[in-house]
């Protein structure tokens, strides 16, 4: 993990949990989103059974193209027997997941600490 360099995401390690934040507050540029997809894939490939928290606290805008990269990541993590949680979404971004019904595909927590507890204890 420590050898992996990212530009679109910032990754913090909490024991065996990868905590991911986005480098951009507005995740919208298609070229950056393609790069983001590649970085998330490398992150998921770095663990046998990845535990991933995506912390949205810095995110003011998130396009549907960016959501698509999270769907791909969620599938990949699930296929490897891992788990993924989304946290700290501002109300508008939370609405985005509600309108699209993707809050039934993703597990969403208000706070990162709640997700850490769940991924650590279950």
């Amino acid at each position: 993990m420590s050898d992996i360099r990212f530009q679109c995401i910032k990754v913090e390690q909490l024991d065996d949990i990868h905590v991911v934040r986005f480098a951009d507050d507005k995740v919208m540029d298609p070229a950056r989103i393609e790069q983001l997809g590649g970085e998330l894939q490398r992150l998921s490939d770095s663990s046998e059974s990845p535990k991933v928290i995506i912390n949205f606290s810095d995110v003011k805008f998130f396009s549907s193209a960016a959501i698509n990269k999270l769907i791909v990541l969620e599938k990949r993590v699930r296929a490897k027997g891992g788990r993924m949680r989304l946290t700290n979404l501002r109300p508008e971004v939370r609405d985005l997941f509600g309108f699209t019904q993707l809050d039934s595909l993703f597990s969403i927590h208000d706070q990162q600490s709640d997700a850490v507890v769940e991924l650590t204890t279950k």
Binding site: I67, K75, F99, T100, Q101, S104
Partner: peptide, 17 residues
């Protein structure tokens, strides 16, 4: 895109959004 069978499809959300 909100139907269960389409949730994991990575396209088609723009019009609805």
């Amino acid at each position: 895109p909100t139907l269960d069978e389409n949730l994991e499809i990575t396209s088609g959300r723009g019009v609805m959004l």
